[in-house]
């Protein structure tokens, strides 16, 4: 019985057409192994969900893959190119763009400026050509057009000229996703796209995530909402205590007792170390803060 489950949802499975392959990625904080991933692959053109209890190391793993944090050991490739030790901006330029758990919109820029910033290869972003508008005006126009189309798709066109700081939490999530698309990524990594989003918006966000796959992009996302995971993901990867404990199609993974253990066991079976506890509390706080920020903006 156990052997059979293993075969379907064993961690570290190889994929037919992997866009990202990671090996032995380890990151420690103090004595705690926040991330300890032996082998991990993402299938191209699919939606992969990364789930796990709080403090499982999902966000840290995100940070490592995108160059925002440095691992103790490990190597990973994107489209066959090594990304270990590559700076975050280069990772993004290679076509692997992420969003953040606590949305990072640029508050004192307008929505459309946020969007324009996402465009790559802008001639006007060079110091010397910046003064001479004719050098970049045409490109700016076409970027703006693309940005406006995306805003329309994400139902943000009415907010075009508002400061991003005035958006609600859900709208920020949308803006961040739309902005990431301005980079035209092959792989888009969404860190908790649903956190703090009200139920009405959730449904449309789900649609947006699916549409990303339909245009041929690969999606990796971190999520807590199991319904959403079941609804849209093609493949689910479960992390607990820094390790990948299971992966497979959504229904198989949800049925795997190891996954249930991971969720319950992490909290109830073992004594929590101080760091674990601090980390869990910190993440919980981050969520609470996000919610507070959102309610403040809405009021």
């Amino acid at each position: 019985m156990a052997a059979e489950t293993q075969s379907v949802t064993a961690p570290g499975q190889t994929k037919e057409n992997a866009i990202l392959v990671a090996d032995n990625v380890v990151r420690t904080f103090g004595g705690l192994r926040a991330v300890d991933v032996e082998h991990f692959e993402i299938e191209r053109g699919k939606i992969t969900a990364l789930i796990g209890p709080n403090g499982a190391g999902k966000t840290t793993f995100f940070n490592l893959l995108t160059g925002f944090d440095k691992p103790d050991t490990g190597a990973w490739t994107f489209n066959g190119e090594s990304l270990s030790g590559v700076a975050p901006y280069r990772v993004a330029r290679k076509g692997m763009v992420r969003t953040f758990q606590l949305t990072k919109v640029l508050s004192r820029l307008t929505v459309i400026e946020n969007m324009r910033l996402g465009a790559t290869g802008q001639r006007g972003e060079k110091l010397l050509s910046s003064v001479f508008a004719p050098l970049w005006r045409d490109q700016e126009r076409s970027n703006t057009k693309r940005a406006e189309d995306l805003l329309e798709r994400f139902k943000l066109d009415a907010k075009r000229d508002d400061f991003a700081g005035s958006l609600s939490g859900g709208q920020r999530k949308l803006l961040e996703m739309a902005r990431a698309l301005m980079v035209d990524p092959e792989l888009i990594m969404l860190d908790e796209p649903m956190a703090g989003v009200n139920p009405a918006l959730k449904q449309s966000l789900l649609g947006h995530v699916k549409s990303l796959r339909d245009e041929g992009r690969t999606v990796l996302f971190v999520e807590h909402d199991m319904d959403m995971v079941r609804d849209i993901s093609d493949w689910v990867v479960v992390m607990a205590q820094g390790k990948i404990v299971a992966e497979g199609p959504p229904d198989d993974v949800m049925a795997d007792p190891a996954v249930v253990d991971a969720y319950l066991g992490a909290h109830h079976d073992t004594e929590l170390s101080f760091e674990d506890e601090a980390k869990i509390v910190a993440e919980a706080e981050a969520e609470i803060e996000a919610e507070i920020a959102e309610t403040e903006e809405q009021s």
Partner: peptide, 21 residues
């Protein structure tokens, strides 16, 4: 200009600007 936009973006949140390449 777009150059100034990048600077202002950095002022607001440099990690976000980094994530955009």
């Amino acid at each position: 200009s777009p150059w100034g936009r990048v600077l202002k973006g950095i002022r607001e949140d440099e990690d976000a600007v980094r994530s955009l390449g």
